[in-house]
Computed example of a mutant assay.
Amino acid sequence: MSCSDDQPMTADPLDSIDDAVAAAAFRRLVRLLRHRSDAANIDLMGLAGFCRNCLGDWIAEAGDLDKESARAIVHGMPTAEWKARFHVAATPEQLARMEESMAKNP
């Protein structure tokens, strides 16, 4: 699964949010995703076009970290452990929804 990392070309009010406020909101999102292990990455991809791994990849890119370290931050544990505990195989329907959703990403 790949995640879009395109940046908007025009001024965006999102850019005016104080970094501390944005960081607090981001941490709340990550903590919610850690708590909601029942929300499968494939379903997140199908609905929103991003998942926990995407967030980790964005952290890696923004912070000059390796992907595994950044994904472990989002998962709250090493990715392999998270997968062993919570990952379930995707159905063909989930994969189709993901593909459709990803096509909408910029």
Rank of each mutant, 00 (worst) to 15 (best):
N41V: 01
I17R: 13
F26Y: 13
H87R: 15
A84G: 07
A89H: 09
P92S: 08
A24D: 14
I59Q: 07
W82I: 00
L32T: 10
M1Y: 05
T10C: 10
A80H: 11
E93D: 15
D15K: 12
V74A: 01
G49P: 06
H35G: 04
M102R: 11
P8W: 01
F50H: 06
T91W: 02
T10A: 15
M1K: 06
H87P: 00
E68R: 13
V88F: 03
R28V: 07
N105M: 13
T10K: 13
R34S: 04
D19W: 03
P13T: 05
S16F: 05
S2F: 05
L65F: 07
E81K: 13
E99F: 02
C3E: 09
D43N: 07
F50I: 10
A11F: 04
S2H: 09
A90H: 00
R85S: 08
A103H: 08
S69N: 14
P106M: 02
A72D: 04
A89Q: 11
A22Y: 11
A89N: 10
E93W: 02
D19L: 08
A62N: 10
T10S: 13
M1P: 02
K104A: 08
A80T: 12
C3H: 14
W82T: 00
V74E: 00
G76M: 02
A62G: 09
R52Y: 02
H75N: 11
V21H: 04
E99K: 14
L95Y: 03
A48L: 15
F26D: 06
L47A: 11
H75Y: 15
R71F: 00
N105S: 12
H35F: 11
D64A: 14
S2P: 03
A25S: 09
I42P: 00
L65W: 13
L14R: 15
R31P: 01
D43E: 15
F86Q: 00
E81A: 07
E99H: 07
P8V: 05
